[in-house]
Design a protein around this nucleic acid. Structure first.
Lengths: 217, 217
DNA sequence: TAGATTGTTAATCGATTAACAATC
DNA sequence: TAGATTGTTAATCGATTAACAATC
């Protein structure tokens, strides 16, 4: 039995955020040549309950077989499809500072179908600079670039000042989603997807968890 | 009435992960010169419920005043204290690749008390290179460096291969927490804190949310 | 005082876990 | 067939929201 996950609606974000981790573990098992795995074995490996694994997967369809478990390669590919990794995504990177350049140089995203097509920056002194074969362009060229290329994701690696305004401009040019590293909440329409990576907030969480230890038990 | 949050135990991680965002909004309000704010106003601004704000804060004590609301500056500082931002943290960075260098060059962490003291890499060709005043050292020197400096956090910006082993070594040298950018789950004792930043998993979530739109409604 | 808004209890909602019949 | 393990329903647990008495 196979579910039609393309029509899947209202899957909770808790479930979604666990999918990439399943994908990672299954990919590693597949690389190791493991052919089948039960939810019980996988739960031991991943340190989650077997119930949760089965519940999560069954949001998208029945990928297993009673008495057998799950075929690793098949499940790996299916989760990849659910995550949309079978499709190509064309990205533009806004902000070619340290972090922007680091992301542009990271090859693994490309392997998963996320291809950076253009890099833009407001700093004139780096216009024309080439990063992994891509020329850094001035911000003014974003609109025409997006008209000529099939861009769906913008990576925002710019300071928080101006990020909201740039995001709104990109929305008007037809962007579909943002991978937002700027330390602000974008204010875009509901049909635009935003995935935030707020590094300083992540570090603060770590700080909290370290601090507890001192005063607490 | 003031709670003693140093003794706060068992605060749910959902609450903790919202604190940095409160902190950010309150910091901005403070910068704008806003003196007081009610949970209702703040809820409108942050797009969460006022109930949630009051519940979250009351895990740590009563910071507000009936009929008045919250003093912005006071609450900002209190949340900073809860997050441990009043304390200094000495970090070492393991892996001076693109991402590692980008993080090392990022000045804002330092402003919040997270100071990178040492940078280590296994690649001989960059040993001796200076990044923001810090010399890149060979991995072999980590142990003595940690003995001489009061390091509590390790930033792991190395490939997943070897990350688990390096982490275990660092634990034996007395590290307290990890900010882990490697695409693996570290396998460290319970008393060691790990904050994961799995960029590719974040991108996959974005991909999923974009994909839904096509097949779905 | 009257109005406003908190702190906190109670009600609701959703997510996780347990259990087990279905079935390979 | 017997054993194993899923898919799925039911039970539990936790988190969010609503309500309101306390109080500034």
């Amino acid at each position: 039995m196979r579910g039609n996950y393309l029509e899947a609606k209202g899957i909770s974000s808790a479930v979604i955020s666990r999918l990439p981790r399943y994908y990672r573990y299954l990919g590693e098992l597949n690389d190791e040549g493991v052919e089948r795995i039960s939810s019980k074995e996988l739960s031991r490996l991943m340190k989650v309950t077997a119930s949760q694994i089965r519940q999560d997967l069954n949001n998208f369809g029945g990928f297993g077989q009673q008495g057998y478990g799950y075929n690793v390669k098949y499940l790996y590919e299916e989760i990849g499809n659910i995550l949309g990794l079978d499709k190509k995504h064309n990205l533009i990177l806004i902000g070619a500072g340290n972090l922007g350049q680091a992301l542009a140089n990271y090859v693994n995203f490309e392997k998963r179908g996320f291809i950076i097509r253009g890099i833009f920056d407001c700093n004139k002194s780096i216009h024309g600079k080439v990063i992994r074969g891509i020329t850094v362009r001035p911000m003014e060229e974003i609109e025409s670039f997006m008209a000529d290329n099939d861009i769906d994701i913008a990576v925002l690696t710019i300071p928080k000042t101006g990020a909201v305004e740039v995001a709104n401009r990109l929305v008007s040019y037809g962007i579909k989603g943002f991978w937002n590293f700027a330390h602000v909440d974008l204010n875009v329409p509901d049909h635009i997807e935003v995935e935030n990576v707020h590094l300083s907030e992540s570090l603060m969480k770590l700080s909290y968890n370290l601090g507890c230890r001192k005063g607490g038990k």
